[in-house]
């Protein structure tokens, strides 16, 4: 029974991914990709990975989907001929160029052959693999008492491999920097270039947003608190916060923009600064990110709270900067 479900789910995963990459219509491709993200969340649940399932649904399918849908209107169709006009017949087909020339055919064929060979080699390699020599789950279980939290994934994420997470928070912040630099770098006075149909697919009623946003705040708080002993934590909580901001934006209650004021900048940098400060402060007693055992739980909670705020702001910022920049 389980096997049948797994096989069905995998077939659906492969189908949605394959169609998302091949269907001629970009809108359908994005929708299929969101379906793919939701199916991935299901797959993570099947793999005993509820933390990833939550993150995948919220970030992988939800926020990525919102970003993609919002970008769709700006990226679909040919380059405009005259201002405000899109040639109607070519709106839906996206990459419509002429038939590719011979070398393109040859190179495309080569790429397909290589990809198939890679897939087969990987499959063979996976099937032939013996059991590993080291069992990290056992090491994790043995060290859980000293970790300051009760949930193993959180222990790995914020204690055993907390340094990865520190750098990862920097990656997220960095992406926002890049987006702000690109989206906000426009010369002033230039008219925005937004096709009229751009955001038609993304309308949210104000009432719904007004109800859902405070609810999201509650959920985020719960996820943050729960992360210490069960699935959840800063990333999931931050994603929910960001989703609330995106909803408010779509309902017209929160303006977008690509030039954050200093309070907002401080909020965006806050999580990273708290993390860095804790990482540095504990070095007085030992090494980088070595929490004193008695303080581990409290310090992790402190870091996660800062991170929730900044991750929420950053993820929301990615969306608001992108959608705001095109409508200024």
């Amino acid at each position: 029974m389980n096997l049948a479900f797994d096989l069905l789910l995998i077939a659906a995963l492969l189908w949605s991914a394959g169609r998302a990459l091949t269907t001629p219509d970009l809108f359908r491709a994005v929708v299929l990709f969101i379906v793919f993200g939701l199916l991935m969340a299901l797959a993570w649940a099947r793999l005993d990975a509820p933390d990833i399932a939550l993150a995948e649904a919220a970030i992988g399918a939800g926020l990525t989907g919102a970003l993609l849908l919002d970008a769709l209107g700006h990226l679909r169709g040919p380059v405009r001929r005259k201002s405000g006009l899109i040639a109607p017949s070519t709106v839906m087909s996206s990459e419509g160029a002429g038939p590719p020339a011979f070398p393109t055919y040859f190179l495309n064929g080569l790429a397909i052959v290589l990809a198939v060979a890679l897939g087969l080699a990987l499959a063979g390699a996976l099937l032939l693999l013996p059991e590993p020599a080291i069992s990290l789950p056992r090491e994790v279980a043995a060290a859980m008492d000293a970790s300051g939290v009760a949930h193993p994934v959180t222990a790995v994420l914020l204690n055993f491999r907390g340094y990865d997470t520190l750098l990862e928070v920097a990656v997220l912040w960095l992406a926002l920097l890049g987006v702000l630099a690109v989206a906000g770098g426009r010369a002033p006075g230039r008219a925005p270039v937004t096709p009229r149909s751009a955001r038609a697919s993304l309308k949210v009623p104000r009432l719904l947003a007004r109800v859902l946003a405070p609810l999201a705040l509650l959920v985020a708080g719960y996820l943050l608190w729960a992360g210490a002993h069960q699935p959840g934590g800063a990333f999931q909580a931050g994603a929910v916060l960001a989703a609330a901001a995106v909803l408010l934006n779509l309902a017209g209650l929160l303006p977008g923009g690509a030039t954050p004021r200093w309070v907002l900048r401080a909020g965006l940098g806050f999580g990273l600064l708290v993390f860095l400060a804790v990482a540095a402060a504990v070095m007085g007693q030992g090494v980088l990110l070595q929490y004193p055992p008695a303080w581990a739980g409290a310090l992790i909670m402190l870091i996660e709270t800062g991170l929730t705020l900044s991750i929420g702001l950053t993820l929301a910022g990615l969306f608001l900067a992108l959608s705001g920049a095109s409508r200024q």
Binding site: R161, A170, L174, G185
Partner: peptide, 22 residues
């Protein structure tokens, strides 16, 4: 794996710097 994270950090920073002039 930590090297993977540093590679991503490096790559995104470099791309951001190239694009920054817009």
């Amino acid at each position: 794996f930590n090297l993977y994270v540093t590679l991503e950090l490096l790559g995104l920073a470099a791309v951001g710097l190239v694009a920054a002039s817009g």
